[in-house]
Amino acid sequence: MSQNFEFYNTRANEAAAEANAATLDNVRERALRSETAWREMADRAKQMEADRETARVDREKRQAELAASEAAEISEPLTA
């Protein structure tokens, strides 16, 4: 996982722990809102990482196909 995901997830866990330990309602509610925001950021970071990996695989596949196509063109005898 990326450092961003780990960072956001750690902050979310800290906020959840703060909410569980809170004795005042407003402090608990603030911590729960914070946890929700951190979890959303963690989810987006995780999705971005997955999207980047998909794009990388697709790019490598296209490059391999192009290289194979160019190699086939070079190996074909020219007909005039």
Rank of each mutant, 00 (worst) to 15 (best):
M1G: 14
Q3P: 01
Q3M: 10
Y8L: 05
T10G: 03
T10Y: 09
R11K: 15
R11E: 15
R11G: 13
E14Y: 12
A15D: 08
A15I: 00
A16H: 13
E18C: 00
N20D: 15
N20L: 02
N20I: 04
A21V: 00
N26V: 08
E29A: 05
E29C: 02
R30C: 01
L32S: 02
L32M: 09
L32N: 15
R33K: 12
S34Y: 09
S34L: 03
E35C: 03
T36E: 14
A37L: 09
W38A: 00
W38Y: 13
W38Q: 06
A45V: 10
Q47R: 07
Q47Y: 09
E49Q: 06
A50V: 05
A50K: 13
D51I: 01
R52S: 04
R52E: 10
T54M: 11
A55W: 03
A55F: 06
D58P: 04
D58G: 12
E60A: 14
K61D: 14
R62W: 03
R62G: 07
R62N: 14
S69D: 04
A71M: 07
A71D: 03
A71H: 09
A71Q: 10
A71Y: 05
A72D: 14
E73G: 07
E76Q: 08
P77C: 01
L78V: 08
L78Q: 11
T79F: 07
T79I: 04
A80E: 12
